[in-house]
Each structure stands twice: as structure tokens, then as C-alpha cells.
Computed example of a mutant assay.
Amino acid sequence: MLSIEVNNQSKVRVENEKAKTISSDYLQNCTKNRYRKKAISDSIIHTHLHGCGSGQVQQAIYALQTALCINTKTLVPQTMSTQEEFLAIKYAAGILHTKDIIEHVNSQLDKGIWSDVFLEILDCDPKGWGCISTLFEKYLKEIGVLIPTIEEAARELVEHHVLLIASGTVMPCVQFKKILEDIDNYDYYSKTKDYLGDNLGIHQMYGWYYEDYCTVDQINQGILEASKVWVTTYAKKH
């Protein structure tokens, strides 16, 4: 299996801003009113997810749940992979949507975690991406979570997915496809030196993913072994 060598022509990637809107009646008035009263306690102990996702990603993330003590006034992240940090990474990568932010706000309020920005988000009408994204950035600033650059976000997403692959708890080819989807807005083509994706260290996995002369089992095994090499070579040491 050979890694895929990139051609000399730079691939132009143009992403059009999508209107990420949801219906203005997304929340019933009774739901809004229920959230207008601030939680009685300023400190709540709850289970905080390391990231977010769906399907296999979510199942793996659930296995990494840890108990955190959250102060609702400061809400300072206590790990490197808090839910808010992961949302900020997805936001920077251009894969976070209005619905995701609304769901996060509702989830936090259900846990008794309050922010005045939450009410602004719920009251925003219509719930267009421009309004919601501005308020989301305001919320991240309030809790001290920085929005990474798109390159930083791409590297964080790659590490997130590759660690899952290396753990052996997910289907390697399916998870690698998620990597390519999540970093689609990042131009790793022009940053390639010899083999496509080598600036992110995913060139071997990339080659296996597009291998035409192997069985699915062989491809999965190849991606799995390459992911383990990636972990020893590129993964941050926390």
C-alpha cells in the first residue's frame, strides 16, 4: 500500500456560507419561561461529557465520561476536552450548526447551569446563524473558552478521531471518513509536502482508505495500525 502523492496543481476549495436557520417557533413560550428563572444553586455537580457526537463517536465519548464540579458563575473548564471546548473546535472548523447550539443551551439549562446569554439565544428571533453564532461567541468568551484557528481545530479533530480508531472501539474506515468530513473546510491539500495529508500525519491512513486492491478487513486493519503509529508520533501528551 502506497500513500497517495498529491499532484502539483493546488486544489481550490470554496465553501459557501450556508444559511443555518431553524423555525422561530422552535421553542414554545412555556419552555422559554421555564428558563427565565435563574437556578437557585451556583454550584452543581453533574456528569460532563468529553465532547459530543452521534452514533459510534458518541458511544466512545460516553465511555470517557468524568464527574466535574461546575461553578455556574465562572464555569471554568477543568479538563482539556470539555464539551464547550469541543463545540468551539467544531465552530472553528465550520461544522457546528444553529441546532447544535440550541441543543447545548437546553442541555445546560436542564442541568441547572445558567448564563444570561442562554436567554438571549432563546429569545433570538428569527434564529438565524448570524445572530446565534454571535451570541455563541459571546458565551464562549464569558466562560473563558478560546476559539481556535481552523488549523488548530483540524488537528484537534484529527486527534479526537484517530484516538478513537486506535482504541479499537470503532470501525476504522467509517471513523476515518468522519475525519475527512470534519476537516473538509481545512485546506490540507496546499499544505501537503509529499503525500496527501502528511501535514496532519494522516497520509498512511488516507492511502489505506482509498486502497483499491484490498479487502475491507485489510483496509480496516491497515488504518488501525496506521492510527497506532500516529498516536505514538503525533498525539499530544496530556
Rank of each mutant, 00 (worst) to 15 (best):
K193A: 03
L146W: 08
T192Y: 10
E156C: 09
I40S: 04
M80Q: 09
N16H: 10
S43I: 15
D184K: 14
E152R: 05
K237D: 10
Y26T: 10
A39D: 03
M205P: 11
V57L: 10
W208Y: 15
K32Q: 01
G55M: 10
I61S: 06
T74R: 00
L164G: 01
E137D: 05
K178C: 06
S24T: 14
W114K: 06
C30L: 10
E151Y: 11
G51H: 08
I89M: 07
A60P: 01
S81I: 09
K141M: 04
L68V: 13
C124P: 00
T192H: 08
C30N: 06
V105R: 04
K32P: 03
K193Q: 09
K127M: 10
I150F: 08
Y209C: 00
T31D: 05
G168E: 10
V216R: 09
T79M: 05
N106S: 11
T134A: 05
D110F: 06
K111N: 12
K90A: 07
E181G: 01
S133N: 12
L2T: 09
V216P: 05
I40K: 13
C173E: 14
R13L: 12
K99H: 04
P77S: 00
I89N: 02
L163M: 05
I95A: 00
D116W: 13
K18I: 09
W129C: 03
S227G: 02
Q204L: 12
P148T: 02
Y195K: 08
G112Y: 13
G94D: 07
T21I: 15
E17W: 13
Q28Y: 11
I179P: 11
W114S: 02
D125L: 08
P126H: 05
T149F: 12
H161E: 07
S24C: 12
T169Q: 14
Y210D: 04
R155H: 05
L119I: 15
P148K: 03
C131N: 06
I61A: 04
G207P: 13
E159Y: 11
T98V: 08
D125K: 14
Q218S: 10
G207N: 06
Q78M: 01
I132H: 07
W208K: 02
I165D: 02
Y209A: 01
I89P: 01
R36V: 07
E137G: 02
L119R: 06
A60I: 12
S41A: 08
G144M: 09
G168Q: 06
I121P: 12
M1W: 15
A39E: 00
N7R: 06
K20R: 10
K178H: 14
L200Q: 11
T169G: 00
Q83S: 01
K38Q: 07
V170A: 04
G197W: 14
K127D: 01
I179M: 03
I121M: 12
D100H: 15
E5F: 11
L157M: 09
L75K: 12
S10A: 03
T169W: 14
D25V: 11
E159G: 01
A39T: 12
K37G: 03
S23H: 13
I45D: 02
